[in-house]
């Protein structure tokens, strides 16, 4: 169960009318390395991982939903007042004919989200290594979006989200250290 705070984890301000950026941001909304994939991956893996790190997966999965909400806010702000012509110029004509300006879990190329993006192998090390890789891929995706964006206010929010990927990767790496730790073993040399 969750309690909801009716505010974003970090403010989202968009300073330029640029629906093309919304198209790029969809990579983090419904893409393979996006926030939805991250949240669902950790939320599901936590059932079959040693108790010492269940809480970590739970906390990070929860935060990923807060990031998803920030990305949604960005996409919404960038498209809500766009005319069909502006959406067409932004490469979003195909999105418009199916969804109007509604948000949908597509990636930047318009491919809909699929559970095949994520895994749960049941092996704690395999799953945590996947999670570390997912955080690094999400970090890289934020970098490439920042590289493509000229909007300083949007980039400020994207830098916050990128920093969170760095911290999450660190915590998953520490989780691996916890699970492989041998300090409790009695060793005779």
């Amino acid at each position: 169960m969750w309690t909801y705070e009716k505010k974003l984890q970090y403010p989202v301000k968009v300073s330029t009318c640029n629906p093309t950026l919304a198209k790029y941001l969809m990579e983090q909304y419904g893409g393979a390395d996006g926030e939805l994939a991250a949240a669902l991956r950790y939320m599901n893996q936590r059932y079959t991982i040693p108790g010492k790190v269940i809480g970590l997966l739970n906390d990070i999965a929860t935060e990923e939903f807060a990031h998803l909400e920030m990305i949604a806010t960005m996409i919404y702000k960038l498209t809500k007042d766009a005319t069909p012509q502006q959406l067409r110029d932004a490469g979003l004509a195909e999105h418009y004919v199916s969804h109007d300006s509604a948000l949908f879990y597509n990636n930047a190329a318009g491919v809909p989200f699929t559970a095949a993006y994520i895994q749960a192998k049941g092996d704690p090390i395999a799953d945590l290594y996947e999670d570390i890789a997912a955080e690094e891929k999400a970090r890289a995706t934020y970098q490439w979006i920042i590289d493509m964006s000229d909007d300083p206010d949007l980039n400020d929010s994207l830098r916050f989200l990128r920093e969170r990927e760095v911290v999450h990767s660190q915590r998953f790496r520490e989780a691996v250290e916890i699970l492989k730790d041998e300090r409790d073993q009695k060793k005779v040399f």
Partner: peptide, 15 residues
């Protein structure tokens, strides 16, 4: 604002 409590983990990115 920065996204981390720990100075060592802060990593500013720009194009």
């Amino acid at each position: 604002r920065k996204g981390t409590l720990w100075k060592v983990f802060y990593d500013y990115y720009d194009n």
